[in-house]
Nucleic acid binder design. Sequence first.
DNA 1: GGGAACGATGTAAACGTTTACACTAAATTC
DNA 2: GAATTTAGTGTAAACGTTTACATCGTTCCC
Lengths: 416, 416
Amino acid sequence: MAPRSPKPLGPSLSRNGRPGSVTIKHVAQEAGVSVATVSRVLNEKGPVRETTRNRIREVAERLRYAPHGAARSLITNKTSTIGVLLPDIYGEFFSELIRGIDRASRQREYHLLVSSSHGDRRELEAVLRATRGRVDGLIVMSPDLDTQTLQANLPETLPVVLLNCRSDGAWFDSITIDNHGGAHAMVRHLVELGHRRIALVKGPAGNFDASERQRGYRDALRELPGGWSEELEFDGDFSEEGGYLAGTRILQLADRPTAVFSANDGMAIGVLLAVRDAGLRVPEDISVAGFDDIPISRFTVPPLSSVRVPIADLGAQAITRLLHTIDMENRHDRLRVTLGTTPVLRQSCAPPRLDERRARGTAPTGESIRTNNPPTAVGGRSTAGGPQTASEPTAGGSKRTGSGKELSGSPRRRGP
Amino acid sequence: MAPRSPKPLGPSLSRNGRPGSVTIKHVAQEAGVSVATVSRVLNEKGPVRETTRNRIREVAERLRYAPHGAARSLITNKTSTIGVLLPDIYGEFFSELIRGIDRASRQREYHLLVSSSHGDRRELEAVLRATRGRVDGLIVMSPDLDTQTLQANLPETLPVVLLNCRSDGAWFDSITIDNHGGAHAMVRHLVELGHRRIALVKGPAGNFDASERQRGYRDALRELPGGWSEELEFDGDFSEEGGYLAGTRILQLADRPTAVFSANDGMAIGVLLAVRDAGLRVPEDISVAGFDDIPISRFTVPPLSSVRVPIADLGAQAITRLLHTIDMENRHDRLRVTLGTTPVLRQSCAPPRLDERRARGTAPTGESIRTNNPPTAVGGRSTAGGPQTASEPTAGGSKRTGSGKELSGSPRRRGP
DNA sequence: GGGAACGATGTAAACGTTTACACTAAATTC
DNA sequence: GAATTTAGTGTAAACGTTTACATCGTTCCC
């Protein structure tokens, strides 16, 4: 590629004519030392005389020298980059996750090589192979993919953390959110409110999160005499549209359910819409609960009960673990962590109507409809502990003179 | 670092003992050819005998060889990676943008090095320098940052596309969305509905998008006899909370505005909430419009009028331009593109009450409150053309028997 | 049959770093 | 004052590729 040429390199002009790429050689030449010394100064390794050091620093600064990443990682075998493989689309969840990962990695001076969509398997393989020599580790989240492909296409030495995947038999580290526990707790809560006929809006088939949440739903209902029934489970695809469709179908059931648990918030919002379009009210006529607690859920009408997921934690922990593995050269044993999820109760859930409860014989424990819960702090993250009551702005039932003071949550800037 | 050792390298064990990293040498040795030949086969350059080629391919496959990215880019001076620098937090907008960029770049077999937050200037500088030898080009979006720092810390040869930045005097390419035009058109629409007293919820000070939208708002009002007035402009920060606060203050005005234009949808949702909490109704008592048309805006109550922004386009165009610049080695002239934005009308805007209009003397053109617009296709993206009527599911005013059939828009999966 | 042209392959230089090792001169130790 | 450490620096190998050039057979064309 490069023509063979004599030694003398122009002061800040590399041989191939493109200016601007000043190398360590230029710095060395300009400072009148060898490249080794420059390298030593810049990496603060080995002893260098004070005066020399200053001179080199000054020259480097003046020439705007920045080491060539590829060259460096070629020899050090470190890229200070970690790869992030994400499923096709993840909306709110996605951006929050990236944010968590980014923050944690920046702190440790690592870069992020992100790949957000990998449709078919061949594409995934291509991406995987392409990562060689580009990343020091990999964070993979692909709830509808098999880990086989991963295992086959990655060098065994590459540290990998699986996020929220079914990690069947794979020897990767994995960090998961407690989908099952969260769903179970939320449905359990609905049951405690007095609901017996609770519909489910499922997530996409084959999706790990979706199936775990379904499992949680079923297990919660299994504790009741009636158990669960397939006819109360409706297909969905994690989209608002899908939720709307499912909601519409649910409302057409002869014996209408008194509550709907949706496998994510997006679909739950679709259900809310369907209920409204059918001329019914939430939660008076039917309760609705979601999963994920995306930011907007506090602002739906009525505010949506949901299951809070520690998304940012998920990312941060993945990074921590990954970098730890990278540091300890030797492979330690496989990690499996499950992060707790927390039900957050808002106004979209209430006890079923009195008459319905009477008809079913579930004893009422208080007045018919709970409106405004007293603000209570949301803390902890245990799944085991029962659901908690949210302290966020409640725009629920009817009039409240909101002062705005109650607005809580981290002041995240969104938009533009 | 590596100990000097004799030539013979184990069949698939690199010298430093870490297995798994099989190099081109291993392949060459195994296939009984020189590395040059292997390289030629794998890159499909130069003539190689059919049989040799097959043998090499087979060996490479068997050994799971993947070229070392860093080594390759060291010599080719191409990384097939482009860097993406984003502002701290961008929620929906952010993920959509990444998605657009990712899709476009993957198609061209480019990787993405993402850096989403760069707080202070020193941090940004560090990130910028770190990109040397890691990326072939840069996409930068930082609506509240000066381009000076960029210019100072990047090699002149690096292709850069600025997204939605004030590109004062910089010689970078820049692609911008028509913030001014969109805001202008939306406010203009409110005016045509009969509104005269229109409040603004501003974005964060110093933010480019925010200030442009404010300018659009002012320019639209300037066309009226009254003009604009500072006392109708309220501080915001692009968050729902900020919108709620601003909304509350707006409603407390003695002479209450009949409409509110918010610099983004998040704040507009906050305003919706504030109105509801004050016991008033949208759009009967007050109209509300936002900006960005984030997915959720179709599902608020009532559905929010907003300005659609071609986010994915923004990303895709940036990539296209960038790669084009990379291909053409020589620098052509600076590009400045503005992408049109499209007002999308939903149920959150209606003519002001009859009595109010009479009091102000603005002639009513029809009946008092427009409820359901006939579904019309949303197309094109011209800002110049007037606002368009949305065809999305309307959950507005009161009961509608939604069939779900009207649900349109791309079937984006969200969640989980 | 003697080049010329070409096809197939190997050799080795480069890319920009880091770092083991060699070397010198000064400082320390005995 | 000699021996030994130590600080400061240079030399050159290595990292894993790509590719210009050299080499060696063939085949082709008069």
